[in-house]
Amino acid sequence: MGSRRLERSARRLLDRLHDQVGAGLVVAAAVPGLAAVVDQHAAAVRDILTTGVEAGAAVAGSVLLAGYAQGVLDHVREKGEQLRVPADAADWARADWFSMRLVAVCSLARNLRPGHPVGTTDELPSLA
């Protein structure tokens, strides 16, 4: 992969996203139920990106994740809404679909090493 420019901007977007909803990951680490939800979202996102993007396997995972997250964020914005990021652990338990989706993206991004395709990296933590 010769070009790092897209990857770099994708990294930046994911970092911003992490600043926004990263708290959800921390909460999820402490609340098993929430962790399971995040994992399910993450699995869904991963499946969508591996099967729904042509040549997705050849492209850095961060680029795909960033594209996906941007799509979700833009959808929220175009509906004229703000992303309602939960404030504390109790709120996270009632977090809406968008927040959970974005937290899932963050968790996938965290497990990515730069340049790795999504499909092969992220071993889902077993739900057992």
Binding site: E54, G56, V63, G67, Y68, G71, H75, V76, R101
Partner: peptide, 13 residues
């Protein structure tokens, strides 16, 4: 790929 992922994200949302 990025554009496609973006599209998937929008559809999904």
């Amino acid at each position: 790929a990025s554009a496609e992922a973006y599209q998937r994200g929008r559809e999904d949302a």
